[in-house]
Design a protein around this nucleic acid. Structure first.
Lengths: 170, 170
DNA sequence: TTCAACCAATTGCAAAATGCAATCAGTTTG
DNA sequence: CAAACTGATTGCATTTTGCAATTGGTTGAA
């Protein structure tokens, strides 16, 4: 997989990597949802990605250096997809994208609470989160106590909103 | 023009607005290149956008509220495209995109010097730049002395690199 | 007053990407 | 041994893209 190289402009080249309707969605699910397997990405996809598109994008992202693919020792057919430093450093872009979308687009409260927290936490929270991802995906650094991680906090906030909505609806 | 609404996730909805290979390129040329007319966007396009794609995206961006289209009083056929607050607040996203691309992709020096300055300037420079865009496109706020604007400084840096490259090549 | 250059698109068409459903062969679990 | 699960692949219809040519009109200069 090689870039088009329409121009050497950084914004253009970034768009050539993930300027489509699915690549960033897959990376979002890996970064914020903790997905590591094909089936996890396929079956829990909020937007309903098709399996052929998912297969195509995973292959492409691996070829571009955004992901790595390794065999799962517990299952001979299972593959584990890992983020690379290249995709981990997408966190600030994701944060800005979420912040912008929250202001201008018809987001739902449950799905935007994480973006809100990420925005409020600012660059220092993004750094903490990236370090967690480095530990999980690259084996770099030291683990944090379970439940205190950024992902756990984001997820807890999401769950709280979902439960509040359920109470309101009932 | 209405969004797909695959989900209410802010990242997904943002992608539905500009998750394609041309929309952000057009907005980049308007924000950083100061383009306001169809022909300017078409003829000075580094990536070589086709006229039908440009027409389609301009229409779409207007419908989504990212641009406004007004008649040019000097030419009955000429249209002026203006950024809206919605697209002006894309500046932080552009800055992050440029910063990421500069690290990970084969950018050229001339086309990435602006991204470098924008990154180094940080949020306060982004704010200055957004305020300039608000004055230019929305008529809000006060003008700055010519030559001291962020856009002028970015452009001067770009020109300096281009000239240095020309000297080196000769 | 004629005419070339310019204006924002539109049209026709081939190629590529997308989306959907069905399917695949191998692996694990009950 | 069968059912469920693994990461895909295939076939096919639809949609989007990209390119080149063209449209109907405007402008400015000769």
């Amino acid at each position: 997989m090689t870039l088009d190289r329409r121009s050497g402009c950084p914004i253009n080249l970034s768009l050539e990597v993930f300027g489509d309707r699915w690549s960033l969605i897959i990376l979002r699910d890996m970064i914020f949802g903790g997905r590591r397997h094909f089936r996890e990405l396929l079956n829990h996809s909020m937007e309903g990605i098709a399996s052929n598109i998912l297969a195509d994008r995973l292959k492409r992202l691996v070829e571009l250096g955004m992901l790595t693919r390794t065999d799962d020792p517990t299952h001979k057919q299972k593959a584990i997809y890992s983020l690379t430093e290249m995709s981990i450093t997408l966190v600030p872009i994701m944060a800005q994208l979420g912040a912008w979308g929250r202001v201008w687009l018809p987001v739902t409260e449950d799905l935007s609470i994480r973006a809100k927290l990420l925005e409020e936490g600012g660059p220092s929270l993004w750094d903490d989160f990236m370090n967690e991802l480095r530990f999980e995906h690259l084996g770099i650094g030291t683990p944090k106590p379970a439940g205190t991680t950024v992902r756990a906090r984001l997820h807890a906030a999401y769950q709280a909103v979902v439960e509040a909505q359920a109470r309101k609806a009932s």
